[in-house]
Design a protein around this nucleic acid. Structure first.
Lengths: 151, 151
DNA sequence: AAGCCGTGGCGAATAGTGTTCGGAACCAGC
DNA sequence: GCTGGTTCCGAACACTATTCGCCACGGCTT
C-alpha cells in the first residue's frame, strides 16, 4: 500500500469507470503497470467492488430515515436474526449493529411517509424481539465518495 | 424509466465496470442501444457517478461510529454551518440532518477508539453551537449496493 | 567487487471494446 | 396512406485492455 496504490484508490473512488489509460496517465505510470496494481488491489481485498450511485428519487424512494431499534434479549441469535430479516427487506438500505441504548440503526428509503409508517408497524411492531424503536426522518444528507487514509 | 432502464441501473449498481458489450448481452439489446440508454440515464441524473468500494481497514479506519448531535439554536445558519464543517473533516464519512431529539447524525470512521475520542473532544466539544452529543460505536454493519425501485 | 536473483515497471502487439452514424422498423396523428 | 418522430440496430473505425518478453534496480551471497 504505497503512494501509487493510494492514488489509484483515490481515483477509482472518484470515478470507477475511467479508462486504465487515463488513470495511468494521471499517475505517471505505464498502463500495464497501472493495470497490474489495480488487479492486486482487488486480490488483496482493498477494492471490494465498483458500484453506480443512483438518485433515490429515480427509484421512487424520496423519503429516507434512520430507525433505532432496541431488542430483547440482545443475544447473538436475536441480533443475527433481526439483522438478516431487516437486510432482506426492500425498504432497507443498510443495517448497523451499534453500542448504546439502542442496539440497531436501520437506514431505510421509501416512496412516502405513509410507506414509512407501514414499514414501522408491519415490519417492526410485528416482531416480538423488538421492545422499542424510534425513527428519525432525514431532511438532508451528504455522503463522501472519496475517503483518504488516516494517520 | 422503463424495464430496460431499470435493468441497466440494477446491473451498474452491481458492477459498474462491466463492459458495455456484456451489459448489452445480458439485457438482450445491441451495444449501441445500451450505450445510448446509459448516457441518457447519466444526463437525466439517474446515474450520479461510479465509485469504487474500498475496505475501510485498508485505509486505516477500522473503527466506525454514528455521533448524534444536538445544536442550539437549530436555525438554518447554524445547521448549514455545522454540516459544512463536519463534512470537511477527514474522519467524517457522511452527515445526516434529521428530525427528532437530535438534529444531526454524523457517520465517522477512524483508526482507533483513541482517535474517536479525540475527534469528539477536539471537533465537537469545541463548537459552541453543540449542546450535547452521543456516540454509538458500530459493531457490525451491512450495506446494500443494489437498490430496486419500490411500488 | 562481481555475480545472482527476485521484484516491479515498461512498451509493443493483439484481441477486444467504445462510439459513431446511416438506415430500418415502429407508432401516432392527421 | 403519408408524415414526423422515436427507438433500435449493425457495420466501421478509433481506442482500449491485456499479455508477455525485456530491462533496470536493489538486496544477497560468495
Amino acid at each position: 500500500m504505497d503512494e501509487l496504490d493510494s492514488a489509484i484508490v483515490r481515483e477509482l473512488q472518484q470515478d470507477a469507470r475511467q479508462t486504465n489509460r487515463s488513470l495511468a496517465q494521471k499517475l505517471g505510470v505505464a498502463p500495464s503497470t497501472c493495470l497490474e496494481r489495480v488487479r492486486l488491489l482487488h486480490r488483496r481485498g482493498v477494492v471490494r467492488g465498483y458500484h453506480a450511485d443512483i438518485d433515490p428519487a429515480a427509484l421512487n424512494r424520496p423519503v429516507e430515515a434512520f430507525v433505532s431499534v432496541q431488542l430483547r434479549p440482545p443475544s447473538r441469535q436475536v441480533i443475527e436474526g433481526f439483522k438478516a430479516a431487516m437486510f432482506a427487506l426492500p425498504e432497507v438500505l443498510a443495517v448497523y449493529v451499534v453500542a448504546g441504548e439502542q442496539d440497531f440503526l436501520v437506514h431505510v428509503s421509501v416512496p412516502s411517509l405513509d410507506t414509512l409508517h407501514s414499514f414501522l408497524i408491519d415490519r417492526l411492531t410485528q416482531r416480538r424481539e423488538v421492545t422499542s424503536f424510534r425513527s428519525q426522518i432525514i431532511y438532508d444528507s451528504a455522503r463522501k465518495h472519496v475517503v483518504a487514509p488516516l494517520d
